[in-house]
Structures are given as structure tokens and as C-alpha cells.
């Protein structure tokens, strides 16, 4: 008995502070959040009657929340596609021995070092919705002015001030910021493929395209999966960038669950706010948990 304690005792003592902190500050608070989401605490007036899943049902039936979910889907798709395409492209270019690789690697990676809030303030100005052919068009700034002055005036648009597609404009700065990170992931993936494999393929008469198609790409799929998981869960939680770009929290066009949670919270609707928080947690878990299961299985193998 004592011998057993001797083996797992110190290990337990070592991890117990972390366990306690996690239990209190993560899991207990999640439980509390779920509890609030099942009450009728919709105003500042203290009230905590249990209403079960009613808030969830109402939210899912609410047109505004459906709009937020649809926006979230659109944002995630555009954000993922953009970062993967640009990240892969840059990594692919830099992977070949080219002049100034170190320099360009840093250039692409640097935007990630800027916080969303700081870049969001700049992007707010860049994504100004005024167009040169509208009334007051002489005040046009940002990307619309740039497009106009290089002769691409027809590309001007209202960016995020559009209830249907506006959220895709929010993905533009997000892509700008995180493509470099995805590039770094892919670059590491490329570097992990031994040169011998390429040589062997070439000796067997493999064309350059087939080399990528049958030798390199299959070995990049774990990197790709990591990138999708990391970018995907960031997109589901994206809040600060939207808040920094869009001045007013209530703005309908760009409402996603994260911003809606905030709007409900400042309106003292704590129950709805907590319910949206729980929904977001479940959404993120749907992405992350299968990935964790998958990686732990891989490690066991």
C-alpha cells in the first residue's frame, strides 16, 4: 500500500495545484455558466428561477441568432479558406531554395505579432464603407480610395456594412494576420519530409506535379488538420477583431454569437448571454475534441 503511494504520490502532489485551479477556474465556472443559462435572469433584477432549456430553444428559433450563426459559418469558411490558401502558397514558394527566404518568412509572420485590437483600429479605417461614386464620395478613404486610384474602382464595396456578406469582410484582416502562421506550419511540414524521398521519386521518373501529388501532399495532411483546427477554433471565438473594427457593438450586419453574447451581457440579459456562451463552448468542443481524440490515438500507435 505504502509502496503504491510512493509511486503515484509525488506525481499527484505535483499536478494537484493545477488540477484544483482548473477545477475551480475552468470547470466550476463552466458549470456556473450553464446554470445561469437555465434561469430566467433576463434583467438586472435578481431572479433565478429554473427554466430548463427554454432559453436555448428560444435562441435557436430567434431570427437574429440564426443570422449570427449563419454569419459565424460564413466567417469560418472564408477565414479558413483564405489562411489555408495563402499560407500554403507562401510556404510552397519559400520551400524552394529561393533568394531571401529568411527575410520573407519574417515578413509574412510579423502580422501575427500584432494584436487584433491594434490591427483592427487600422482595418476600421481601411474598410471604410464610403465609395467614390456615392454622395460625399470625395471623403472616401482606405481600401476603396486605393482601389479607385489604381483604376480598380469597380471593386469598391461597402465591406462589412452589408447584412448578408459583410462578415466576410471581417475575414480579410483575419486572413492577413494569420496566413503567416499557417505558412510557418506548412513550412515545418515541408521541412519534415526527408530529401531522400524526393530524390527517390525523381529517380523513379516522377514528374514535379506527381511528386507533390503523391509524395509531399499526403505527408502534409496532419499539418493541414492542425491548421484547420487552430484557425477554425479561433474563428469560432473571434470577438476582439470585430469589436475593434466595428464601432458599435449593436451593429446587426456583423453579429456573430460572440458579439451577441456581449450585447446581451451589457443589456443585463445574463441568462441569454450565458446560453450563447454555452453554445459557443459546444461549437468549439465539436471542433477540438475529435482532434484531441485523433491525436491521442496517433500517439498511442
Amino acid at each position: 500500500m505504502f509502496k503504491k503511494v510512493k509511486t503515484w504520490g509525488p506525481a499527484l502532489a505535483l499536478i494537484s495545484p493545477t488540477l484544483v485551479l482548473l477545477a475551480v477556474f475552468v470547470y466550476a465556472l463552466i458549470a456556473e455558466n450553464v446554470r445561469i443559462s437555465m434561469t430566467n435572469q433576463h434583467t438586472a433584477r435578481p431572479s433565478s428561477d429554473f427554466v430548463g432549456m427554454e432559453n436555448y430553444f428560444r435562441l435557436f428559433g430567434d431570427a437574429d441568432f440564426q443570422h449570427a450563426l449563419r454569419n459565424l459559418l460564413l466567417l469560418t469558411v472564408v477565414f479558413l479558406a483564405g489562411t489555408l490558401i495563402f499560407g500554403f502558397l507562401w510556404a510552397w514558394i519559400l520551400e524552394r531554395p529561393a533568394f531571401g527566404e529568411g527575410f520573407f518568412r519574417s515578413v509574412y509572420l510579423f502580422p501575427m505579432a500584432v494584436s487584433f485590437i491594434a490591427s483592427g483600429v487600422v482595418w476600421r479605417w481601411l474598410l471604410s464603407s464610403l465609395q467614390t461614386d456615392q454622395s460625399g464620395g470625395e471623403r472616401t478613404t482606405g481600401l476603396n480610395r486605393l482601389l479607385d486610384s489604381v483604376g480598380l474602382g469597380f471593386l469598391q464595396n461597402s465591406w462589412w456594412s452589408d447584412p448578408n456578406w459583410g462578415i466576410a469582410a471581417i475575414a480579410v484582416p483575419a486572413i492577413w494576420q494569420l496566413s503567416g502562421y499557417v505558412m510557418a506550419l506548412f513550412l515545418a511540414g515541408f521541412r519534415g519530409i526527408p530529401e531522400e524521398l524526393r530524390e527517390a521519386a525523381r529517380i523513379d521518373g516522377c514528374s514535379e506535379w506527381k511528386l507533390y501529388r503523391y509524395v509531399i501532399f499526403p505527408q502534409l495532411s496532419p499539418v493541414m488538420l492542425s491548421a484547420v483546427i487552430i484557425i477554425g477554433h479561433m474563428s469560432l471565438k473571434l470577438f476582439d477583431l470585430i469589436r475593434a473594427i466595428v464601432p458599435d457593438a449593436n451593429t446587426y450586419d456583423i453579429q456573430v454569437p460572440a458579439t451577441m453574447m456581449w450585447v446581451k451581457y451589457i443589456g443585463s440579459d445574463y441568462a441569454d448571454s450565458a446560453a450563447i456562451g454555452t453554445i459557443m463552448l459546444v461549437l468549439v468542443a465539436l471542433v477540438v475534441v475529435p482532434y484531441l481524440v485523433y491525436t491521442s490515438r496517433q500517439e498511442k500507435r
Binding site: 458599435d248 451589457i266 443589456g267
Partner: peptide, 19 residues
């Protein structure tokens, strides 16, 4: 009106700006 009411009405007014 209280903040919660104002908040919901603000979202509705913001929504109106589009369609």
C-alpha cells in the same frame, strides 16, 4: 427605457439600416 429594452431596440434599428 431600461438598458435591456434600449439594447434590443438598438439592434432592431441597426438591422433596419440594411434591408
Amino acid at each position: 427605457v431600461p438598458v435591456a429594452w434600449l439594447n434590443e431596440l438598438s439592434t432592431a434599428v441597426s438591422k433596419f439600416g440594411g434591408p
